[in-house]
Design a protein around this nucleic acid. Structure first.
Lengths: 259, 259
DNA sequence: TCAGGGCCTTCAACCTAACTTAATGCTTGA
DNA sequence: TCAAGCATTAAGTTAGGTTGAAGGCCCTGA
């Protein structure tokens, strides 16, 4: 016997459209766009204003940082290529000064190196040009949702983490899927807990090495793959088609925030 | 919201099935379900009645609180979205008035914010829709087990601790297994008492050093292993296959919470 | 009061089991 | 097409179990 939740008209499920945001009951979301290209800038600005966001823009990195610190936007959309101070530097500085502020980075198409650097610098997510505005909006919502529920990853609270059928009990170091208990090794457990505490957030391999394997570990980062492999074998119903621990091609892994 | 009837016959095991619970020797467990959806409510009610539980239901928050205070159920299953008084308010009120009563919260799919709030409000665990009834049963058992054995670790009350054949009398510093009395050294006793006060909870070595050895002890933590070794020799029927004091690889030790 | 002995605790060493890392070649997806 | 990811296996490393001995404390008896 399974209880499902279909055909449930939850207003939240309309996410991703401009109209939905416009009727949102909550106070307008403040959006700061740091982008030097006028076309992109005004397109974003127009779309999101109409969608009920309050949009501020900045044309270069220095101005962006200023604006972010003065206006405390709810989310920053940050281009990587900027005059005066490039996106990575901006990201780094904002992370230092306002660690909580969610940052969504715009990167040139296929610029994997930059994506990785961006994520390592502390961006919360990235989106590659070209992108649709609806896509951007979806990402922004996702980042905002995560920020609201942010569990600082090392807080390691004793409260159980539940994601669908998956349940992690940090105090007992127990993991169950549905009613089945799963035995994990320490590394597997640490990885899964980190992932599941921050669904949707992308963890680059380098970052994982630092976080789970202590600092400046100059190792083979394929090692992570091995652990992910074994973790999936234990945790996924069908390891060939993972539903929880997902690969982000060229970057690393993340926990699904679907469902 | 619909109820489907799939994959009920799970070949994995017979544990947790209605039949197994029905023959449980202990007095019926009282379950209060606060849920406005008739389908879910009757599905839960039917399943758990058949499993030998005594089930009471309430259709809204206010009625739920009343029922909880009048009937003193062993565990409350509480939906978050309720008419009259929402789940969070119910949870908060129950926590104030009967702090011991275990609460398991049902949350809508994806409603992470609510999960967190729920736990902050004092729910003991939560489960996301959709869920299987077997899964719910597993959670309920887990919450009940924790509630039964919950001892704040520093309470160090003088009441004897009984776990199966093991009995610890803190006032007399006596330990018996079955009818056999066991002589423990102070460290052995302290360890065993700490473990047995919180079955299932994992105690890292560092934590034990702080707790049992006081001060920030910069020592050899293999010392703990020695004590565990001797403790097991005295306390376990077969020290090669410990049933009480269990190793958690890479972390420390815990007391078994089976049975 | 001091020596002797017993018990508890700590430490060290060795051994095994468990887990992690590395390397390989194959598969996959941009 | 080809770099990135995956699966498999083998080697390496680390953590835990076990044992025994040294040090310290306390009790006891001379």
């Amino acid at each position: 016997m399974t209880i499902t939740n279909q055909a449930d008209h939850d207003p939240r499920s309309n996410e991703g459209t401009a109209a939905a945001a416009a009727v949102s009951p909550e106070a307008a979301t403040n959006l700061l766009v740091i982008e030097d290209d006028d076309n992109i800038c005004s397109a974003i600005s127009e779309y999101f204003s109409r969608a009920g966001y309050k949009v501020t823009t900045a044309q270069d990195g220095a101005a962006g940082v200023q604006s972010a610190l003065n206006n405390h936007p709810d989310v920053v959309v940050l281009d990587l290529m900027l005059p005066k101070m490039d996106g990575l530097a901006v990201c780094k500085e904002l992370r230092q000064k306002t660690p909580q502020m969610p940052i969504l980075m715009l990167t040139a198409k296929d610029d994997i190196v930059d994506k990785i650097l961006g994520l390592e610098m502390g961006a919360d997510d990235y989106i590659t040009k070209p992108f649709s505005l609806r896509e951007l909006e979806a990402r922004i919502k996702s980042v905002l949702r995560r920020a609201r529920t942010a569990v600082t990853e090392d807080e390691s609270g004793e409260a159980p983490i539940v994601r669908g059928k998956l349940r992690i009990d940090p105090a007992r170091r127990e993991v169950t899927i549905g009613d089945r208990q799963v035995e994990l090794t320490p590394k597997e457990f640490d990885l899964l807990r980190l992932f599941a505490s921050n669904p949707g957030r992308v963890f680059p391999r380098k970052y994982l090495l630092q976080k789970i394997w202590d600092y400046s570990y100059e190792g083979y980062d394929r090692t992570i793959d091995s652990h992910i492999n074994r973790l999936r074998a234990k945790v996924e119903d069908n390891p060939d088609n993972p539903q929880m621990v997902l690969t982000v091609w060229g970057i690393g892994y993340k926990f699904s925030d679907e469902q």
